[in-house]
Amino acid sequence: MKMVRAVLRPENTELVVDALAAAGFVALTKVQAFGRGKQKGIDSGNVHYDELPKNLLMLVVEDEHVPQVLEIVQQHAKTGNFGDGKVFVSPVETVFTIRTGQEGV
């Protein structure tokens, strides 16, 4: 299993969530966040915005589904501009359901 974390522009988040759901990936967590990338924020006129609003999507998928999830995120989150976001993929050793104590997704 893998944990996929996608840091996205807020205006693209629902497009990604809807596309993931349509593909069968309905279980996810969405968190509002603030951050900046390599460009260290943006300048608009005389104002510098150091941290920008982002959304963090987190979902756990089987290894064979990672390429499909990455394609969906890329397709629906890409604007071609700086700040489109990042996707991080990490291994997941174990998952437990709190209510039942059952191990596994």
Rank of each mutant, 00 (worst) to 15 (best):
F82A: 11
L57I: 10
K86Y: 10
V31N: 12
G41V: 00
Q102V: 12
R36Y: 05
N55R: 02
V60P: 01
A33N: 04
I72S: 00
Q32F: 08
G41M: 02
D43Q: 12
P67H: 05
L8N: 01
R9W: 02
L15G: 13
F96S: 10
T29P: 00
E14M: 12
H48N: 11
E11C: 12
P91G: 14
K54M: 02
R36C: 06
Q75S: 12
G37S: 11
V89F: 08
V87T: 09
N55E: 13
V69K: 01
G83W: 07
T94V: 15
K78P: 01
N81E: 13
V4K: 00
T97D: 13
G35K: 07
Q102K: 15
L56D: 01
Q32R: 15
F82K: 12
G37L: 12
E93Y: 09
G83M: 12
M1V: 10
N12W: 13
N81I: 01
L8D: 00
L56T: 06
V66Y: 07
A6F: 02
E103C: 14
M58K: 04
R36Q: 11
Q39D: 08
R5P: 00
L28M: 15
D50C: 06
K86T: 14
P53L: 11
G85Q: 01
P67E: 04
D63R: 03
A23Q: 12
G80Q: 04
D50W: 05
G24I: 09
F25Y: 07
Q102N: 13
H65S: 15
V7Q: 08
D50F: 07
G35V: 10
G101H: 02
K38S: 13
D84P: 05
V4L: 07
A27L: 10
T94A: 15
L70E: 13
G35L: 06
A21C: 04
G24W: 09
A21N: 05
V31M: 11
G41K: 00
E51V: 03
H65A: 15
E93N: 12
R9F: 00
E14D: 14
E11L: 12
F96A: 13
G24K: 11
N55W: 00
R99K: 15
F88M: 11
V66E: 14
V69Y: 03
V92P: 03
V73M: 05
G83V: 09
R36N: 05
A19N: 02
P67W: 03
Q39M: 11
E14A: 05
S44L: 11
E51S: 08
M3H: 04
V95A: 08
L70R: 13
K2H: 06
F88A: 06
D84T: 06
L15K: 15
A77T: 07
N46K: 14
T79M: 01
I42T: 10
N12I: 07
E51Q: 10
L20E: 02
G24D: 06
G37Q: 06
F34D: 09
Q74K: 15
L57Q: 00
L28D: 04
M3G: 05
R99C: 11
L20R: 03
M1E: 03
F88E: 06
